[in-house]
Write a protein that binds this DNA or RNA. Structure first.
Lengths: 164, 164
DNA sequence: ACTAGTGAGTAGGAAATCCAAACTCACCAT
DNA sequence: ATGGTGAGTTTGGATTTCCTACTCACTAGT
């Protein structure tokens, strides 16, 4: 069964297979902002219309977006996030925060998000058990598929034995 | 590269331009796991070698990875995350949590991450000011570039400037 | 010295995707 | 009747990706 060339089974990879194609996350951004109509998406994202149509179909099939009519007589549609789609918003927020921090000088943020608490949103990823902000050093990965090694960063874990 | 008109200025788009190409985030995943050697990356990700080489060059140029020699005599390299790269890890964790929740039935998670607090990591994105978990309804977007609307059908709010 | 093996890539052409503009189709407005 | 809008589809060429094979530098075994 297993060819000598099996990538690592991983939810990140699976998620990206759905949502990692070009423009998909930007579609989600617009849709979360409430701009769910086809021409708005074309304009705000700058994607070719055919590519956009393909993405939208895929995202609807995946249950991330839903297509709803906002007008019956001249049939007009609007895409909106499903619950699953909304739950991807944190990914967008985290990515935006990273971009703001590392890709822009100073404070020229093109968009600011306000939290209901009254302040600008500065998202942090925390452990939902202890509440601490997650940091790389505090994490240990446990892959469960057999045969995969997760070498510790500086930790000598000489389990290099990967029987083909 | 022919960047098509990118209408909405946005840090999400900018971040994705760097890190949103196929395999880039998987490279980061492996590198954060400590598997930074070329052939490891090829095996664990399943990417063609030439594409991988291109991605690595781009990520190094962008300051997300750095290439360090772990052996001089037979020159051998290893890619490792920079600080900027490590700060992308929360994006991966958030994406993984989403994939675990929405793409997998039950508990067949291919990888479990343990937090230093002793529990399995279930990441949550929170407002770093008030500490609450962010939810879509609690957010208001303020785009600052002129001419862009963030239409909300019920949210026809005059998007005043952010209080200074 | 002569093989074989490994790590880190390049080279080349077929296959898949992407892009921009033009086109459709259905409806509404003048 | 003509023009306009929304939501796509078609078309055909330009890019990217994919995949196999190849190189290059070095080491290990005999």
């Amino acid at each position: 069964m297993a060819a000598p060339k099996d990538p690592r089974p991983c939810s990140i990879a699976d998620a990206l297979a759905l949502v990692g194609e070009k423009y998909s996350l930007l579609v989600l951004r617009e849709v979360c902002l409430g701009n769910g109509r086809f021409d708005q998406l074309v304009r705000n994202i700058g994607a070719p219309r055919d590519v956009l149509a393909t993405r939208l179909r895929r995202l609807v099939d995946a249950g991330i977006l839903e297509k709803s009519a906002y007008s019956e007589r001249p049939q007009r549609f609007e895409y909106r996030p499903t619950t699953a789609g909304l739950e991807l918003e944190p990914v967008l927020l985290t990515l935006m925060a990273w971009g703001d921090r590392h890709l822009r000088k100073d404070d020229d943020r093109p968009m600011v998000i306000e939290h209901i608490c009254g302040h600008e949103l500065l998202p942090a990823v925390t452990c939902s058990v202890c509440g601490d902000t997650v940091q790389h050093e505090d994490l240990t990965a446990h892959p469960q598929a057999p045969g995969w090694t997760v070498a510790g960063p500086a930790e000598a874990k000489p389990s290099q034995t990967v029987p083909s």
